[in-house]
């Protein structure tokens, strides 16, 4: 069972990253390969505020998230909006370029060393059914759950959430309903960055922070999103948990060095046999 508990912890992170991918995929149809960098930046922001500026966590956490949100919006304004030919290939290439730039900046600002972040809650291992789970992991799982429910509430119940869903379905129809589609695209980058940064902050006491973390986190989150079906919100959550658990099961059987290969095996498998993902449905299209 132990592999299950650690799997759920990393899975929660992948789920948050996968939702970030899905939000942007739904509004723009592209994969934002800079998503992982926002996770890294979340960790960097919280590290800087806690240890370089001595800001207490209760303040530093929201500021880090807000900072990431603003950065996500700027990212869209700088890299996405002014692309002349908005083909998917062009846009995806640009997000890759953007991710390289963000990573490079992070290296210049925070250096190449791994930065230590201490637990936000008193660190303790709790005995659960046939295994233990740390308080740090509980924070990760709890926050991911809360975020999932808040997002569901946002998309299902609020005026702006419904406007987002309308844009996912049909941008022109949304615009004639009075929705500013460009603003929605911009905000979806902001929200995706915000979610990434939440993942980055809550996981930082477990994995610590290194400037190059974003690549692997991004790819794992992407695998989770593909697994759950690109664009599917709950699919991303299930995909994330499933990936986390299978990865950690894999690591309990094979040498853990091969753990990362699991995600890519899964991606290949899904792309070959079930390209719409486990829970994905084809987008409803009419002429």
């Amino acid at each position: 069972m132990q592999f299950f508990y650690s799997g759920i912890t990393s899975g929660s992170i992948y789920a948050l990253v996968a939702i970030g991918f899905n939000i942007i995929y739904n509004t723009t149809g592209i994969i934002n390969f800079a998503q992982g960098e926002f996770v890294m930046l979340g960790g960097m922001f919280i590290y800087s505020m806690l240890y370089m500026m001595n800001i207490p966590f209760v303040l530093a956490f929201p500021v880090a998230l807000f900072g990431a949100f603003v950065l996500g919006v700027i990212f869209e304004r700088v890299f996405i909006r002014y692309v002349k030919v908005k083909s998917e290939l062009n846009l995806i290439t640009i997000t890759i370029a953007g991710s390289i730039i963000l990573r490079g900046l992070a290296m210049v600002i925070w250096g190449r060393d791994t930065l230590l972040v201490e637990s936000f809650v008193p660190s303790k291992a709790i005995n659960v059914y046939k295994g233990t789970i740390t308080t740090d992991s509980l924070v990760v799982i709890g926050i991911s759950l809360v975020i999932s429910f808040l997002l569901t509430f946002f998309f299902k119940k609020t005026k702006y959430g419904k406007a987002f869903r309308a844009c996912y379905e049909d941008k022109i129809a949304a615009s004639v309903c009075g929705i500013n589609v460009k603003a929605v695209v911009m905000f979806s980058f902001g929200i995706a960055a915000f979610l990434g940064a939440i993942a980055g902050v809550v996981v930082s006491p477990i994995t610590y922070v290194t400037y190059s973390d974003g690549i692997m986190t991004g790819l794992k989150g992407f695998s989770a999103a593909v697994m759950g079906g690109l664009g599917s919100f709950w699919g991303g959550i299930f995909g994330g948990i499933l990936l986390g658990v299978s990865e950690s099961f894999f690591a309990s059987v094979f040498p853990s060095g091969y753990k990362d290969a699991m995600a890519f095996l899964i991606i290949l498998f899904i792309l070959f046999f079930r390209p719409q993902g486990l829970f994905g449905r084809k987008k409803a299209t009419r002429v």
Binding site: A166, E169, A173, A284
Partner: peptide, 9 residues
């Protein structure tokens, strides 16, 4: 043209 309702809503 073609109504374009939001089919999944």
């Amino acid at each position: 043209e073609g109504r374009r309702v939001f089919a999944n809503m």
